[in-house]
């Protein structure tokens, strides 16, 4: 298969970027999108040109490292991460536009690579629990209801890829923060820091310069981990309950 690629090229954050037109020829239909980019890069290297910088790690859809926007869709069309997009889902000869995530809080490092440390800093502000050191406790020591466990696991599926903030017209990180806060608020292990977690993670989110949620639900539409926007309602609830308690104290 042959494709006409329009790929964003930018040396670093301080310089202006541009779209480069690159032809991808003789690509097998069962190649993944990242494999196609590997082939394109090998040919660029053969021609003594600078390859396209992009991120990838597991290439099996579980790590969320491959942050790119394919034809305007963060992490590409279909459910799953960008590494799970296969060239057979495009038409032969199709023009494919590949861009980095566009959000002020995810500055561009090079080409398709963005700095997503803002999410790490939000997690550092409260996305953790306190636990005893030593041997692992008995798995049945803490009882958790099936319903709560399922909901917590659904929220815990978040891989922190940043597609939610990239898809949001406001670059809001509410789906990510909502997933983290919901996951830990539902479990007994998350109770000691429950109040501080909601307050500190939202404060960190605002300080990182992410936008505000307008309930557009674009985040939910692109999330590779299928996180429901109901975690945003849970975050709103958790935050206000925590704020009320801290005002009362």
């Amino acid at each position: 298969m042959n494709f006409h690629l329009r790929i964003w090229r930018q040396d670093h954050e301080k310089v202006k970027g541009f779209f480069e037109e690159i032809e991808a020829v003789n690509i097998p239909a069962d190649a993944s999108f990242l494999e196609m980019l590997d082939m394109v890069n090998n040919r660029l290297i053969e021609k003594q040109k600078v390859p396209v910088a992009f991120e990838s790690d597991c290439r099996e859809g579980i790590c969320g490292t491959c942050s790119m926007v394919i034809n305007g869709i963060p992490q590409g069309p279909g459910r799953g991460a960008a590494c799970q997009v296969y060239m057979r889902s495009f038409c032969d000869g199709e023009t494919i536009t590949v861009e980095p995530y566009r959000a002020a809080s995810f500055p561009i490092i090079k080409d398709l690579v963005t700095n997503r440390k803002a999410y790490d800093r939000i997690v550092q502000a409260g996305g953790f629990i306190s636990e005893h050191t030593g041997g692992a406790p008995d798995a049945s020591a803490t009882l958790i209801g099936k319903h709560e466990a399922d909901r917590a696991m659904d929220a815990a599926a978040c891989i922190g890829c940043g597609a939610c903030a990239a898809a949001c017209p406001n670059s809001s990180a509410m789906l990510f923060v909502g997933a983290k806060v919901t996951h830990l608020a539902l479990l007994p292990q998350g109770q000691p820091e429950r109040k501080e977690r909601a307050l500190n993670m939202v404060r960190a989110m605002d300080e990182e310069g992410f936008g505000n949620c307008s309930n557009y639900y674009a985040c939910e539409a692109v999330c590779p981990a299928n996180i429901s926007a109901s975690v945003i309602a849970t975050l709103n609830r958790e935050y206000v309950a925590a704020a009320c308690r801290s005002v009362a104290e």
Partner: peptide
Amino acid sequence: ENRQAHPQKYAV
């Protein structure tokens, strides 16, 4: 704030 958070639109 939302405009500041999302200064550049996508090409597609």
